[in-house]
């Protein structure tokens, strides 16, 4: 069972290091990840707890090493496939098309 997300009381994670004058988003892709996740929430296929559960399906080391919106993107992709809205193949294909500059 995975448990990295259940962080209350865990030790050895270091200082908090708040960023001064932090922007709402740090990268353009974070804005898009945020917006598509919220917009897909309106489809009514899952609730907040299900969205969180999907993010927690990352392997523990990856969960702890990932940024917030990386977890969101991972969780959203998982939910879209699980609900039959997209397939893993089409996501992979589209990623390589974009990477090759075809899209």
């Amino acid at each position: 069972m995975k448990g990295a997300h259940d962080l209350g009381g865990k030790t050895g994670l270091g200082p908090i290091a708040p960023e001064k004058d932090e922007p709402v988003f740090h990268h353009e892709w974070e804005k898009r990840a945020f917006a598509i996740t919220v917009a897909c929430g309106f489809l009514g296929k899952w609730n907040l707890d299900m969205a969180r559960y999907a993010r927690e399906q990352m392997p523990d080391p990856e969960y702890l090493a990932s940024t917030y919106y990386e977890k969101w993107a991972h969780g959203l992709s998982l939910l879209l496939v699980e609900k039959g809205l997209l397939t893993e193949e089409e996501i992979r294909e589209r990623m390589s098309e974009i990477s090759n500059g075809d899209s």
Binding site: A73, L86, R94
Partner: peptide
Amino acid sequence: PSEVELKVKALESLLIEKGLI
């Protein structure tokens, strides 16, 4: 673009194409 950037772009374009968002 990083893996996550590609993934987010791919999801956005597919979701728009399918009229889901």
